[in-house]
C-alpha cells in the first residue's frame, strides 16, 4: 500500500471514518512513522477520536482534538493545533473529517494548504449497509456534496461496508460489487476494504487490499 504525507477520511456520517482513522494511525505507527491524528469533526457529539486517547497515547500517536470533544457542551470548535499538522512535514498526518457536507465545511479552511503541499490522499469511506447509501449513486451524491463543501476532491475509496458486530464475511463479499461500481462511476480506485480483524482469515485471497481493524470501540 502507498502512503502519502497526509491522509484524510471523509464520508457519510456513521460510515466508520473515526474507527478507520484511528486504526490507520496505529498501522502507520507500527511501520515506524511519526504519526499525528486530528479530529476535525464539528458535527458529531458522541463517539469521537478522543475516546481512543488511551490507545493512541500508548502507541505514541499525537491526538489533536477540540477540548470540547466528548464533553458535555455542544461547541463546534476547531483546535488551533491543526495548523501545526500542516507545517510539520516530517510527520505522517491523519485527518478525521466530520460526516457529510456539513462536517466537511471545516476542512475548507485547510484545503488550500493541503492542495499546495500536494502529498495527500482524500479517502471516501463507503458503507453500503448504511440506509442512505445503499447504492453507488447514493454514495456519489454525498461524495460530490463533500467535495463542494471541503474544496478538495477525493482520490480513492475505502470500502467499509459492515453491519457492526453482526458483520459476516459474506456481508463483505456482497459489498464488493457495489464498491466497484462506485469506483467505475467516480473514476477513483478502491484503496482498501476494511474488515474486523477476526474476518480477515475468511476473506484472504477473496477480497483485494484487506485492511484489518484491530481496535473496535464497543459501547454497551
Amino acid at each position: 500500500m502507498q502512503y502519502k504525507r497526509m491522509t484524510l477520511f471523509a464520508g457519510h456520517y456513521g460510515s466508520g471514518k473515526t474507527n478507520i482513522a484511528v486504526n490507520y494511525a496505529l498501522h502507520l505507527k507500527s511501520l515506524g512513522e511519526d504519526v499525528v491524528i486530528a479530529d476535525l469533526d464539528i458535527v458529531n457529539p458522541y463517539f469521537r477520536t478522543r475516546d481512543s486517547l488511551e490507545e493512541l497515547n500508548a502507541a505514541g500517536i499525537k491526538l489533536i482534538s477540540s477540548e470540547f470533544a466528548s464533553s458535555n457542551v455542544d461547541l463546534p470548535a476547531l483546535p488551533q493545533e491543526v495548523y501545526s499538522l500542516l507545517d510539520k512535514r516530517e510527520e505522517k498526518a491523519i485527518m478525521d473529517i466530520g460526516g457529510d457536507d456539513r462536517g466537511a465545511y471545516a476542512l475548507g479552511r485547510y484545503s488550500d494548504a493541503i492542495k499546495a503541499e500536494d502529498d495527500y490522499e482524500m479517502l471516501f469511506v463507503f458503507n453500503k449497509y448504511r440506509p442512505l447509501t445503499p447504492t453507488a449513486e447514493d454514495a456519489l451524491e454525498i461524495m460530490s456534496e463533500i467535495e463542494a463543501a471541503g474544496h478538495i476532491n477525493f482520490t480513492a475509496i475505502v470500502n467499509n461496508s459492515n453491519l457492526g458486530a453482526l458483520t459476516t464475511a459474506q456481508d463483505i463479499l456482497d459489498s464488493v460489487e457495489e464498491t466497484e461500481r462506485l469506483s467505475r462511476l467516480s473514476g477513483l480506485p478502491v484503496k482498501m476494504t476494511t474488515v474486523r480483524d477476526d474476518l480477515v482469515y475468511n476473506l484472504n485471497g477473496k477480497v483485494e487490499n484487506l485492511f484489518p481493524l484491530t481496535l473496535q470501540k464497543k459501547i454497551v
Binding site: 456513521g14 449497509y129 440506509p131
Partner: peptide
C-alpha cells in the same frame, strides 16, 4: 434487509 443505523435514524 439489514442496514446499519444510528438509533435516531
Amino acid at each position: 434487509e439489514k442496514v446499519l443505523m444510528k438509533g435516531n435514524e
